[in-house]
């Protein structure tokens, strides 16, 4: 049985159907990318997986348990970082650690916070506030906060969407490095096909909202770590890229015909 599952999940806001019969199965330790154009319901799907919203029909299962509310076992890295601007970098992460591991001794909580700030190379900025950091640094704090909860699933909602191309590339490498270190189950939401190919084991194209559903998955059989420059000339990369685009486009046409 898959670790994280969505079973014919539907979600609409008022009369607008956002997701229609979405099925999803992700194995433990897998890094799956859900790719779709903006407005295709990616964030809605992630909210359902996180438990921040509940599906109208269908259900979400984590390790066989019905997901009914958000919790620290499904850490979310939000698109706009969602750091608390009045807390320092350290306090943002330790707020999570202190609340998730309430019964740990103080020293252990401190060690947990410190280790995860170290992981994203931000220990030197521990006393800064988010307002004093660059976008990339903020996203790293957000990532550290999510990882420090030691979640079973890490949900990344367009984590790099707001960053410039260079920072984005660095962060992609960073995410791959961190993921290879502890092999968490990761769901990455993105609108960037290349990013998904660089990072994911499998790509799920989310096709054409309103009433979006997931198309068949595209497996990414490229060796890790993936070098962004080398990969660009790899014929497999080009094939996967074409495949993802084709499925996104086919899905779009299908929805258009359906709604026409």
């Amino acid at each position: 049985m898959a670790f994280l599952e969505a079973q014919s999940v539907c979600k609409s806001y008022g009369a607008l159907s956002v997701l229609q019969d979405v099925d999803l199965a992700i194995d433990r330790g897998e890094l799956v990318a859900i790719v779709g154009a903006s407005g295709s319901g990616k964030t809605t799907l992630l909210s359902l997986l996180a438990g921040l919203a509940l599906p109208d029909r269908g259900r979400v299962l984590l390790d066989g348990h019905h997901v009914r509310e958000p919790g620290p076992d499904r850490a979310v890295v939000f698109q706009n970082y969602s750091l608390l601007p009045w807390l320092t970098v350290w306090d943002n992460v330790s707020l999570a650690v202190d609340n998730v591991f309430r019964d740990w001794p103080k020293a252990r909580k401190r060690e947990q916070t410190e280790r995860h700030l170290e992981l994203v190379h931000l220990l030197p900025a521990r006393d800064k506030r988010p307002g004093e950091l660059s976008g990339g640094m903020r996203q790293r704090v957000s990532l550290a906060r999510a990882l420090a909860m030691d979640p079973q699933v890490l949900l990344l909602d367009e984590p790099l969407g707001a960053l410039d191309a260079l920072t984005r590339a660095t962060m992609q490498t960073e995410i791959e490095r961190i993921w290879q270190q502890d092999r968490k189950t990761v769901v990455l939401i993105t609108n960037d096909v290349d990013e998904s190919i660089l990072l994911a084991d499998r790509i799920l194209p989310l096709t054409g909202g309103p009433g979006a559903s997931l198309g068949p998955a595209v497996a990414v059989d490229l060796a890790r770590p993936r070098d962004r420059r080398a990969v660009n000339h790899d014929p497999r990369f080009k094939r996967i890229r074409r495949e993802v685009f084709d499925r996104l486009r086919a899905g779009q046409e299908w929805t258009r015909r359906k709604s026409a």
């Binding site: 996180a50 921040l52 919790g71 620290p72 499904r74 979310v76 939000f78 969602s82 608390l84 609340n99």
Partner: peptide
């Protein structure tokens, strides 16, 4: 989003 953080952290 800040409230969502609170919810995720319970």
């Amino acid at each position: 989003d800040h409230l969502n953080v609170a919810r995720v952290l319970r």
